[in-house]
Structures are given as structure tokens and as C-alpha cells.
Nucleic acid binder design. Structure first.
Lengths: 216, 216
DNA sequence: TGCAGCTCGGGCAAATTTCCCAACCCGGAT
DNA sequence: ATCCGGGTTGGGAAATTTGCCCGAGCTGCA
């Protein structure tokens, strides 16, 4: 960590949108102490880039095609427990935030945050601290008071599948993307409906939307 | 428009994520001929900024909280038909694309596109041309077999059934309510899907919501 | 060690979707 | 007046999905 203070903070950017990555890179590098040493647009590349470049912080959008972002966090942390991962996404649902921290993330910042908040979060994570943006803190605070939105009873996989479904994905698309059999996705679909009490796909979509799982 | 050629292309950036806006701004301004003259993070600010700065192109993410992005496009175009709006979003569903063009957008580019494709789209739109990224063109091409516009092509009965369905009603409830056989409602369901190009019930709900047919 | 809970899928009857089709009525064009 | 097109209403049959049951592997926890 001494060389961190001497040379600044090295960052690995993970996001599936190239222009978004390029934008982040410019914003971060204008700070002086932040250096983007590599980029990746999927979970597998992220891990190999991590091994190659050994960055101080991984800034990762968890809504990527292919493997779940949470899965990616778990994989990286399982192999390299010293990895510092800052989740940087537009999603702000309490269940997702908690799942991310449980998976091993060191920080969670929404894209609604001011750039200064983002770079400060990167610096905090690089120091080994836990970091989150103000809106996330508020959401977690409210969540700890009120017990139980409809989503709290859902597991991580169920939430991921619900989000993709509500986003308009077909059963086969979800199965392919998550590497599951169609039957399993169908079963999750049914399980989610019975857990939440939704009788109709439309009700499921509305539920997901009101819980902030998807935007319309 | 003569001053456009002399001074480059002025751009109004609309996106609800500040750091995303800042990233785009840097990417665009590194091009030399593109100048971001204003930013906005919601529909209302977007219109006032448009009136104040009179930009050549509005680059807009339509997935914003609050008012629908499509609504924003319609509002701006209704008041200022010469406005050029380039939709720039991560969504790539055919129904959304068609709805955006119907609302008056001049272009549609996904965030998966290369930065060069995005800036070229901005230049095309500034010249008054229609622009879209390759993936969008493919999606529209596949869809164009049974194409049409989003909701305008639906009859009264179809719209009524779509509204009730998107509101969460079951097929039997709709049939009872409208004094139709279940079979007829099922047929309408299928007909609406094929007319709008929606492949999923969830996409139907999203379409109904973005068109103001139902509130979530 | 054992229990509880999540994940993942098979099986199978019931229901729905997907597409075809035929009518009816009605307004407009010929 | 006649025909055509389109909205509306439903039948039929194959394909698919749903609803609900089941078991198996795994993990964390008591």
C-alpha cells in the first residue's frame, strides 16, 4: 500500500458499454491520482485483466450480459481475496446492494452520484474502507427500518431472473444468458409468482417496476 | 445552419446520471467539431435548455426517472419541430425503437455502439439525416416483416384489452368484463403482440406504460 | 451431525399461446 | 348495388408454457 500512495491508484474498469468505459476513463484520469490500467466488458475478461494488471480497485457495473455481475464478484474474490471491488451501477434496490456486499464488494455507488462522490468512493475503497453513495445509504437505512418489501422474500437468483424478465427478455434468452436450462428458468418464473402473489406476468412486471428492479 | 458549418455542432446532453453526462461530454468534445453547450437530467430541464441554447442535436437517454423519455421527445418536437433528437440508450427492443421514431426522434443509437458510431450518428442527425446503430438496424430489419407503429395501429378493442392486461387483469377477468369469450381475448392478446412486435408479455406492459396506457 | 434454505432440473397433466381459419357487420370505393 | 378492407368475434389443432410435485447437490449454521 506504500506504493499506492506513491504512484496513485490503479483502476480496472468493467462495463459492457464501450463509450461508457471511455467516458469513465476520461473522468477518472482527469483526477490526477487515478489511473485506468485496463478495461473489460465481461466477467471472464475482468478476472484475467485483474490477474495481469493487479489494480488497486475494480470499478464494475454489475448489469452485464453473460454471467451475473454478482457471480463475477464472487469469482474474483474467491480467487483473490485482496481484490477491492467498487460496484458502480444504475440500480439502487436494497436487495441488490445487500447481495453485492455479501458477494464481496467493497463499495456500491450509483450512477446518479456526483463524479466527486464516485472518485472519493474509489479512494476509500483503495484504502481498504467500505464505501457507498448517499442514496445507497438512505436506501439501506430505510430498508433496515421497514421489514419486507415484496422482494425481500426472493433469493438472489430469483431477483436476477425477475429483473431480466421484467426487462422484456424471453425465457430462452434468460436461460442462455445465465447458463441455465429453460426448465429451470420456467420453474423460477413460477416460484417468483407464487412467492410474490402475482397471478399475471403483467403484475410481475409492475411489481418489479415499483420495487425499482426495472425502469419503464 | 450556415453557422453550424462554421462553428461545429452544438449538443445538448440529456441523461439522469451526472458522471455519465460528464463522460459523454469529454468523449464528444475530444472530437473537435462537437460542443456540449448544455446538460439536463430530466425532461423539463431538457426543454428549457433547448429553448435557451438552441442546440443542433439533443442526445438523450430515454430511460429517465419521472416523465417518460418518449413523452419528452413528443413535447420537445411538438413545440419545436426543427429539434433534432438522437436517442442514446442501452435498450434495444424493436417496440421502443419504433415508439421513439414515432415520437419524433431523428436517430437511435445503443450504448453498446462504438464511440465512433455515436459521434457519426450525431453528425448525421445534425445534417438532418436519420441515423441508427447497426444493431438497431438489424433489430428493425427482422421486425419489419410485421411492422407498423406502436399503438396507433391498434383498434379500440385491442387498446382496451391491452390496457386491462397491462393493468394486471387475467384473461378471464377481461373476458367477463367485456362480455367476450376467453378465446377471443386470447386471440386479441396474440394479435396485439404481433401488431406491436412485442415478443413477451413484459414487453407489452412496458409498451403500454411508455405510451401512457397504464401507470406503474 | 443435522436441519434449513437456495439452486438446479425432471415429470406430467392442465392451461395457454400460436397460428390457421370462417363469419359478421360496416363504411367507403367502384 | 356491389365489392373490398378492416374491425370484431370465435373455432380448431399443434406447440409451448404453466402449475405443482418431486429429488439432488450445495452451503451455512446450530
Amino acid at each position: 500500500m506504500s506504493e499506492v500512495a506513491a504512484t496513485g491508484i490503479s483502476v480496472l474498469l468493467v462495463d459492457d458499454h464501450p463509450i461508457v468505459r471511455q467516458g469513465y476513463r476520461r473522468v477518472l484520469e482527469s483526477q490526477g491520482d487515478l489511473h485506468v490500467v485496463a478495461e473489460a466488458d465481461n466477467a471472464a475478461d475482468a478476472y484475467s485483466a485483474f490477474k495481469t494488471h493487479d489494480p488497486d480497485v475494480i470499478v464494475m457495473d454489475i448489469s452485464m450480459p453473460g454471467a451475473s455481475g454478482l457471480e463475477a464478484i464472487r469469482n474474483i474474490r474467491a480467487r483473490s481475496p485482496r481484490a477491492r471491488i467498487l460496484v458502480f451501477t444504475m440500480h439502487n434496490e436494497a436487495v441488490l446492494v445487500k447481495a453485492a456486499f455479501n458477494a464481496g464488494a467493497s463499495g456500491f455507488v450509483t450512477k446518479s452520484s456526483e463524479p466527486s462522490a464516485v472518485v472519493n468512493a474509489i479512494r476509500s475503497v483503495a484504502r481498504g474502507e467500505r464505501a457507498m453513495s448517499d442514496d445507497i445509504a438512505h436506501i439501506l437505512a430505510e430498508d433496515s427500518l421497514s421489514s419486507g418489501s415484496a422482494l425481500d422474500q426472493l433469493g438472489e437468483r430469483e431477483i436476477e431472473i425477475l429483473r431480466q424478465f421484467a426487462g422484456g427478455a424471453t425465457t430462452e434468452q434468460i436461460a442462455t444468458q445465465l447458463n441455465l436450462s429453460v426448465k429451470t428458468v420456467q420453474n423460477y418464473h413460477y416460484l417468483i409468482k407464487s412467492k410474490t402473489g402475482a397471478r399475471t406476468d403483467a403484475q410481475l412486471v409492475r411489481l418489479a417496476a415499483t420495487c425499482g428492479l426495472t425502469r419503464i
